[in-house]
């Protein structure tokens, strides 16, 4: 009985793939299947590349640690145009407004590096312990 059922299943699938109408149908589906497979492989290659770059980053961790120890700050040197962009963690609150009279934020890097709210907020009061609930995230 099991054999008969298996036979029926096999014959169903065989006829499915040998049917000329279905064969035509499959050609188009197969074509897109291949394209999607290429995309999936591309995505897998992207993830593999990201992983290998992360491993390379891990290998230079000791160099970064030594540099941070020597320089005393972990702030990134992405922009040295203003002190609050160069050292967002060590600049005083409102530093962004202090570069020139009436200057708000002239540098496009301000779109990327904003002073951390919780750091600059309590800093104005002088201690790190207090929080500003209306600005906390």
């Amino acid at each position: 009985m099991v054999c008969a059922r298996l036979e029926r299943v096999v014959s169903h699938h065989t006829s499915f793939f040998t049917d000329p109408e279905m064969s035509l149908m499959m050609n188009r589906v197969r074509c897109h299947g291949v394209a999607l497979l290429v995309l999936a492989l591309g995505t897998a290659a992207m993830l593999a590349d990201a992983s290998s770059r992360r491993a390379a980053q891990g290998r230079r961790a000791a160099e970064v640690e030594a540099a941070v120890r020597l320089l005393g700050t972990a702030d990134l040197a992405l922009s040295s145009a203003s002190r609050w962009l160069r050292h967002p963690s060590l600049s005083e609150p409102g530093a962004a407004f202090a570069d020139a009279p009436a200057l708000l934020d002239a540098d496009p890097a301000g779109a990327l590096i904003g002073p951390p709210f919780e750091v600059s907020g309590p800093g104005a009061g002088g201690t790190a312990g207090r929080t500003m609930p209306w600005r906390s995230r």
């Binding site: 992405l78 922009s79 040295s80 145009a81 962009l85 496009p108 301000g110 990327l112």
Partner: peptide, 17 residues
């Protein structure tokens, strides 16, 4: 994004993807 600084660090970023 890096602003108008004259000193742009040359760096290879490690993707977090």
């Amino acid at each position: 994004l890096m602003g108008w600084s004259s000193l742009y660090p040359a760096f290879d970023l490690a993707p977090a993807v």
